[in-house]
């Protein structure tokens, strides 16, 4: 087997004595798409925060492409190629949608490739927005972010990640709050990204979407990994059903 792109080793985080994430380990091969599922409050977002560096772990290690990144600040992990979306979208509300992408395009990771002129960046930003389903010829990309509906903001969040040309893309409940048609338009894009070789981690409640993308899944409950395997098999697991539905006869 090839070298894993991401190794998570006994990762633990306690908030004031309460374990939010407890001794979680898994490896991720390049090009894989991993789904993380679990009931609310099971530590999914904390795990994402630990991998991306937004929260410092109490114990454990994170290794990305053979390099230990456990103590690397969040921005430096982005520079290495880890991009994430936020579950609670918080765009730059005062800026037009396309201007929201200027900041990632300006970052050290992509800044040089896109070119120094601000006009270039505007063009790249428009292209990215088109890719995630903003209508190019409409007024939508020029509208201030605060006036956009939630579904657009979610896609703007995705565009922000794609702007960073990630090698590992972490999507934290990207599809929650999107309409069926919005999901239908974004899903093929993510499949395309996966086929292009980008490694994906997706935290998702919507299992149907998760099944289409992920080839492997882990299940969290109370911060611990309770199952791992093929998505369809994992979800059939007795323990998983119990955790999700909270009753034994489910």
């Amino acid at each position: 087997m090839a070298n894993p792109i991401l190794q998570v080793d006994h990762l633990t985080k306690r908030f004031g004595g309460i374990g939010a994430v407890y001794r979680i380990s898994f490896d991720l091969q390049p090009g894989e798409a991993l789904g993380i599922i679990g009931p609310n409050g099971s530590g999914k977002t904390t795990l994402v925060n630990l991998i991306t560096g937004f929260v410092k772990p109490t114990a454990g290690r994170v290794t990305f492409r053979g390099r230990e990144i456990t103590n690397l600040p969040a921005y430096a992990r982005v520079e290495l190629g880890i991009a994430r979306s936020f579950q609670m979208v918080r765009p730059f509300y005062n800026l037009p949608a396309f201007k929201n992408l200027i900041i990632p395009l300006f970052s050290p990771r992509v800044g040089k490739r896109v070119g120094g002129k601000s006009g270039n960046r505007d063009e790249v930003a428009m292209h990215l927005l088109e890719e995630v389903g903003f209508e190019r010829d409409s007024q939508v990309p020029y509208k201030v972010a605060s006036s956009l509906p939630h579904g657009y903001l979610k896609r703007l969040e995705l565009a922000r990640c794609l702007a960073l040309e990630p090698e590992l893309l972490i999507l934290d409940e990207l599809f929650s709050g999107m309409s069926m048609s919005e999901v239908a338009s974004v899903l093929p894009l993510i499949e395309k990204i996966r086929e292009q070789g980008t490694t994906i981690i997706m935290v998702e409640h919507r299992l149907r979407e998760l099944f289409r993308i992920a080839n492997r899944a882990i299940v969290l409950n109370f911060g611990e990994k309770i199952a791992e395997g093929k998505p369809e098999e994992v979800i059939a697991d007795e323990q998983v059903r119990k955790a999700y539905l909270g009753s034994e006869d489910a």
Partner: peptide
Amino acid sequence: GRFKEIEERV
């Protein structure tokens, strides 16, 4: 202080 710790940027 504990207020800020959770959202403290690391």
